[in-house]
Design a protein around this nucleic acid. Structure first.
Lengths: 304, 304
DNA sequence: ATTACTTACGTATGACGTAACGATT
DNA sequence: AATCGTTACGTCATACGTAAGTAAT
């Protein structure tokens, strides 16, 4: 096992082809330089240089070792620089949790913007429901979550990034699709509703239930699912109809139509993002800065 | 400027997540270990570890630096070994970069042939994606790369060594597997597609995207990964389905099935190899000569 | 005789280990 | 009270520089 200084010394001698000149370049005298090279040769068990009393040349093994030595020295500089860039947020890794639907709105826009402006930031994307994201945040498994609602924990910071209205997902050829106008909530309530179960996606379940409750409607809930994907599969199979965020229409599920829902606010479903306030990840901070701008801009292009 | 021993110490502390245990592993006491880490941190001007009095964790910069430190330490060992091989009169060495999938086709055949016919040539094999191989070629870190596509640099020579078709990787029991016939591209496009990110594996990303684009299909890309391995893990986890080269089926990943893709050419995915035209490595030249013959022969035995 | 690298020797920097300290659970 | 990391201090190893030595032109 040798030292980096021995590598530096060896490279200098190989390049100068002289112990004297190399020593001058390294701001030292020749004797210690000679000894360092000897130690290096002893530690790897080979002669790297042939010293004829007039010139110094590399052995074949020395030529190979010289290339490797240069690369190692270069890497030692690069490693420090890379770490400093990470600390400044110019490079690094952001681990992100996101719900299936989030990928279709401002979230995707944000990923692209960060990738374009800070190409040295890597993403690790994992799809998970809100509760799983909360656990993952607190457990330090992700840096940022795009979720429904914000967890109450006071170590978590968050902000609203997007809000949208609800639409009605119905099987193709469904009665409500034939009305020629957006159905009323009252009419929707007369059909079987496929909705989220309360446990895995509490936010969305309560949103839908309270929507009907406030209108004094009591629809028939036929199924409890945990993901929009499966919800839409059930709709496509004719099991029932569902209220889903508008973004879900982008999933283009087979045998499903989406209908506007009359007289409902367009900011009912909120997408938040959340992160640990005590995160030391500078890349996260930089990426959140870009998110601020993307969120501000996104309103102008929602009509895509 | 730090020392290799400081890197060794840092890696040990990061792995053990404890100064005490790391010190025991390094056959020393904790105080000097603490001081070495402090010196390392001072020399690069960053905190690499956060010490809460109960646990030691890596800062984001520390995580990156840990990876670099491991690579540097690995290279210090490799450098000595290479030099020793040369000194023992080996005919030479060829440093080869290859993508994960390449190992399962003509690449493996070539390695065996060279080893049989030129037993004095040593291989240094490193798995890396195409972009990393290009950088490594230009940086002189490898002599030969087995990659997707050829880099435009005019100092690089290359040739086509293998081509194959795409197959569809789906989770076991997936809808597409129940069709009883190869799915159409149109049907594949209706599911979430797990694909490469554009940055690390540009060739493959563009291949898949353009395939859908020409058929006027707009599938939903759900994840960006950098390696086939992780791609298949995501497929097995049910995150989505993926288009992969036929060779990937040899990986036998758990909970993943491979389906033929109907009506697609069988030479869509090309494997090239590339090398520096100004390379002076005689072993490389000899090994490339054998590659010519292996490529010519390989067509006759693709039915394995 | 001169030039270039190696060996010998005295000095000083610094790395280790033991011991004391501070902080957290 | 106990555990873990940091600071303090005395000792010893190691690397430097000067000086002497050896070999080749």
């Amino acid at each position: 096992v040798y030292t980096l200084e021995q590598l530096r010394d060896f490279v200098a001698v190989a390049e100068e082809q002289s112990f004297r000149r190399a020593a001058a370049r390294l701001n030292m005298t020749q004797p210690p330089l000679s000894r360092q090279i000897q130690r290096l040769e002893r530690s790897i068990g080979l002669r790297l240089l042939t010293r004829t009393s007039r010139t110094v040349t590399l052995t074949p093994a020395g030529q190979i070792f010289l290339e490797e030595a240069r690369r190692i020295l270069q890497m030692t500089d690069a490693a420090a620089l890379m770490a400093q860039r990470v600390a400044r947020g110019r490079a690094g890794r952001v681990r992100v949790g996101f719900t299936a639907i989030a990928a279709f709105n401002v979230f995707g826009e944000w990923i692209r913007a960060v990738h374009r402006e800070l190409p040295n930031i890597d993403f690790v994307l994992t799809e998970m429901v809100t509760t799983a994201q909360t656990d993952a945040l607190l457990g330090g498994e992700i840096d940022l979550g795009f979720m429904r609602g914000l967890p109450p924990a006071n170590v978590i910071g968050g902000r609203l990034v997007f809000s949208e209205g609800l639409v009605v997902a119905v099987p193709e050829g469904h009665e409500l699709a034939g009305l020629g106008r957006p159905p009323l909530l009252k009419e929707v309530a007369e059909h079987d509703i496929v909705t989220y179960g309360p446990a895995p996606a509490r936010y969305f379940h309560e949103l839908v239930v309270s929507l009907f409750h406030e209108a004094r409607l009591t629809p028939n809930y036929v199924q409890y699912v945990s993901q929009v994907n499966s919800q839409l599969v059930l709709v496509g199979a004719g099991i029932g109809i569902a209220l889903v965020p508008r973004s879900a229409a982008r999933l283009q599920p087979p045998r499903v139509e989406f209908l506007e829902l009359g007289a409902q606010p367009q900011d009912l479903v909120e997408l938040h993002c959340a992160w640990r306030l005590d995160s030391k990840n500078a890349a996260l901070t930089a990426a959140l800065g870009i998110l601020d701008r993307v969120v501000a801009d996104y309103g102008h292009s929602q009509d895509i």
